[in-house]
Write a protein that binds this DNA or RNA. Structure first.
Lengths: 196, 196
DNA sequence: CCGTACAAGTATCGAGTCGAAACGATAAGC
DNA sequence: GCTTATCGTTTCGACTCGATACTTGTACGG
């Protein structure tokens, strides 16, 4: 308990700090000819499972419209960072896949610079901040939409693994490869999730 | 030490969480007919001292150009939330002042919603997060510009108070009212600042 | 089958933002 | 007094984003 009693000011400034960091992070993401929305989209595609690598899911995640998401994807496709492959069953759907060039440029994600700064914090601090931010995210998204994402094993729709080693999703009524099951899903149902 | 050893994943996700919160906070700020940049500007004007209530300082703070800042101020002036009054001595300068309407709308700052979420965190968590974010801010701004701001009493340019109760700034070679000295300054020099 | 309802994705248009650059006015230094 | 630097604005073009309408495809009910 070495901490002094905290003035009210601090509570206010946390919100301002978050806003400020957000703006800085945003500013960092104008590089390599991309803009923040495009970086966000690349990251989303890289970390999402098959069900979620679609224009609609991206729009949900970014809190934007399908039209805008489609345009962003157009820009990225034109630059050669991703391709869109038709779904085998549902012909309305086009799955987004990173190209090798896309994976390469992701290695230069400007947010890595944020990681460097984070590395200089103590593990305890990072832990506390992560928990706090996750709680904030949860509280906020109740108010302003935005989609929570998680992985199959902690998802309410998860129905266990099949004989051939795939994961069964009760929501999509479909299987997912073991690899994809570790990626984030836009249809994540936290009802079964424990902490984190 | 109840915390489990933390996986690498967590360190990565902190950066992503910050990005995510930033985007959410940004999304919240499309309301009352204003956009994020305009809210940021209103907040800046409300919390800045006389020296900093100018178009140039706003640009520095927002990490944008003077031209863009000027346009944002135009929009806000047209909506009646602020006015620009010429400086008595330097005729190049126009000081930005909130109108009563500006103060009113600031009471409905959408970031207050973030404050509500923050209120539900423990004081210790808020404290740790605030310190951590401040450190991140400092580290980041070294890399990507952006101006740190602070108040006179912890500023390297502060030269004490004058006979008539004003605060003397060695950088601007000018006095500041006691009230303004408690507001943030774009010329803040942290060399004399202790923690916070 | 056929028709309706709905969902995924795309194209188009207009408002608005932003940055770069040029400009005018003023201040400061020699 | 002349030159240079600073503050702010304006203009222009590229681009983003949201709203809307549209195309294509699926599901369901008769």
């Amino acid at each position: 308990m070495g901490a002094q009693p905290i003035e009210n000011v601090d509570k206010e400034s946390l919100a301002r700090l978050l806003d400020r960091i957000g703006r800085m992070a945003r500013g960092l993401q104008y590089c390599h000819g991309l803009n923040p929305a495009q970086w966000d989209s690349l990251r989303f595609v890289a970390h999402s499972n098959l069900f979620s690598r679609t224009a609609g899911a991206l729009a949900l995640f970014l809190g934007t419209t399908k039209g805008t998401a489609s345009q962003t994807l157009n820009a990225l496709e034109k630059k050669g960072y991703l391709t869109r492959v038709p779904d085998a069953e549902d012909k309305r759907i086009r799955h987004i896949e990173l190209t090798p060039a896309g994976e390469e440029i992701l290695a230069e994600d400007p947010l890595n610079c944020l990681d460097l700064a984070i590395d200089r914090l103590s593990a305890d601090t990072v832990d506390t901040m992560t928990r706090g931010l996750q709680e904030l995210c949860t509280n906020l998204q109740a108010r302003c939409g935005g989609q929570d994402m998680g992985i199959c094993t902690s998802c309410g729709h998860f129905q266990g693994s099949t004989d051939d080693g795939n994961m069964r999703c009760g929501y999509k009524q479909a299987d997912l490869s073991c690899e994809d099951a570790k990626r984030f899903c836009i249809n994540f149902d936290p009802s079964d999730a424990r902490d984190c």
